[in-house]
Design a protein around this nucleic acid. Structure first.
Lengths: 227, 227, 227, 227
DNA sequence: TATGAATGAGTTTTCATTCAT
DNA sequence: GATGAATGAAAACTCATTCAT
């Protein structure tokens, strides 16, 4: 094997800073151009570094992507854990977690797309995608199971499959919204998702749950900020 | 001034055959490798043609992709129109159309993915994706509106947003299943989707609707054939 | 050797017509694009013929160029012979022949340039250029010699070299004018050339010869028509 | 967004050396083969560099040509400025400047031809040609005007047109001589040009001016060295 | 560590020419 | 003779990666 690149453990402060700059720059360019269209030269340039310096820290373009993916996973992990009001009712919890998801997804949609783009070619990244997705889906499945135990949700439902579908419903909607640029009203989206989800797993909706679900007209993507 | 490539109207039988061979070969390779990794040389070789012959019919890789996309759109259009039992109840209709969708999607998942891959770089293809998606989503929206008029579905629901979400739910599930290779049981998937969808839009489920929705264990992707 | 192409002697009327169409078309495209940039496909298309038909009559692109060059030589030969007033004085004859030359050159400048372009690569065409040039230069040399014998022109002058230079003077001026698009006034050009030429070889100018040679301002390239 | 190629300002010594090597190699190959026939691969190879290195410094073949043209213009500019004996008579000055011109032209004829070849396709180079030509022609025009003021040259002559013609006379002669390989005797050429020029603009020739203008036989292009 | 020059394998694309019908 | 499809030998150009300093 060739000499191991730097970039592993022992890095000076300066080295760490340089490396971070590269990772950040890489993420920026990936998001703008996608993986294939990203040039290592541009990543280095954006980090205000010489072209060659890139290879002081990474073995390849795939390698930085892996690093960026690690950061993405961490961020998504954080988001998937982030607390929800323990004292709220099930519908409010669904709404809250959907809102949280839409927010993180909005900020990470492009990077998620890049990972998916690369997946077919590199199983390493296929795994990353599935792992991130699992973070949310597993959580949803737990929630459904809890509600089933409490007798609030339909016990006949396969919690895992339902979770995969409901999670996918929100994720896919977010893709179309944030990635493909289809216009949607944030509040309307949130309420519709909440209602479909809650009712879908068999929860009883009180009037209070549904009253914001009245149809609204799209306010366009600028409303994304409202998520 | 440049002579337009062939590939437009007046083609001899032989020419038409060659062109078709190229389009088919292109679709195959695209599905196997994705757009970026596809080599024009391989497309030509697979059609048992000389490299240069490709350019007798197409201007570029983008150009064939466009042609393949036209076929894909046509196929999806056909599928989206395909009849459903007029005499069936709403839940059965939802189940039937979901099943139909899963089936087409299974056969076209890779190609859909290719289109999505290319979308960010080329608006032409972004449009293709949204168009195909619209085929199904619009149909779903109509169905919801009809049920709302009939008093069967929740009138408070925004039919368009709900359709986008429910359609997305099934599409995304299919992505994960057929593209990312996550294992799922076909019947279980179908029933779960049906129940979530039907209940989500506010339909009353009779016992007969739900009795197949009991949890099952995954029978693996081989079960995809059952769709 | 391969089977000889058609295009040599025995041609049907239709064949002759087709062949001529190709030669004409070729000349047009050569003049517009230059040799390298000319596509055989475009030549055929402009003659409203199929691409392959070109090779029924010519062996190669070089081959048509050769044919076009033959026509060019013939035309130039014609022009170089064309009569001049036998009864005119020497200065008037110089003026007349210069005017005639400028006129032919204007119509053939582009083709001459194409021939020159190709010359370095193909001696066959280098020869064509020199041959055409010789047509005029030799004639000029004869004229000078005649005038020398008559005692009108400087007998010390090397007629051949002087002819080469004076011919070149007019040709080069025409190049800059018609090829490089530099603006010139036709009358002014003609008179200046005549005076330089006549005086250069030692003729005595009578006042009548020079009175039109007064400076004029350029009237632009539209004046080219005046030649 | 694309990083500009190197080749602009800040280059290391090594970089500068490499770039120069490329420019020199390019000029060589251009002169030997002409622009179209020149292969970037050959330019690189002649500079003992890898193929790709060419593109580290230049964007395209056109791009190096532009660089070579800059050098050519500079060289010609230098030549057009180079001093002439202030104390010499007008005819001697004409002879001296003609000799100087023939000398530079001999060394740059091929490159001038390349520029002209490319001119019709690229206005950038059309301009270069006209600019270089203008260097000499303007100088000639000034000379004529000066002589007109001094009463030595025909005041009726349009100095600009005459300059264009006389400059063209020498340039064209040089083209035929150095480019098309037509044989000429250097001294004879020089004297003939001088006499035609001087007499053409109306100067009085003293016997001393003309006595070398007696006819000589061609000594072939090897005589070019005598210029 | 950082730099920036060098490398060359890999692709797309063009187009003159050939060929079967 | 005419047609139009097929061929494949070039060439230009790109860019990830290596390397000398």
């Amino acid at each position: 094997m060739r000499e191991r690149r730097l970039g592993e453990r022992p890095l000076t402060t300066r080295g760490r800073r340089t490396r971070n700059a590269l990772v950040e720059a890489a993420r920026e360019v990936f998001e703008e151009k996608g993986f294939e269209e990203t040039r290592v030269a541009e990543v280095a340039a954006r980090a205000r570094l010489a072209h060659g310096t890139f290879y002081t820290y990474f073995d390849s373009k795939d390698d930085v992507l892996h690093e960026v993916a690690k950061g993405l996973t961490a961020e998504m992990f954080e988001a998937s854990r982030s607390g929800e009001p323990a004292d709220a009712g099930p519908v409010d919890r669904i709404r809250a977690s959907t809102e949280r998801f839409l927010r993180v997804y909005r900020d990470n949609a492009r990077m998620m797309h890049v990972i998916e783009q690369v997946s077919p070619r590199n199983p390493r990244f296929a795994h990353v995608y599935l792992e991130i997705r699992g973070l949310f889906v597993d959580r949803i499945a737990s929630g459904i199971r809890r509600l089933q135990k409490e007798g609030a949700a339909d016990p006949a439902l396969d919690a895992d499959t339902a979770a995969s579908m409901l999670g996918g419903m929100v994720e896919h909607f977010a893709r179309v919204w944030f990635l493909h640029g289809q216009e949607h009203d944030a509040d309307n989206a949130l309420e519709t998702a909440t209602v479909l989800w809650a009712r879908g797993i068999g929860l009883e909706l009180t009037p209070a749950d549904g009253d914001t679900a009245s149809p609204r007209t799209s306010r366009g993507p600028s409303a994304a900020g409202a998520v």
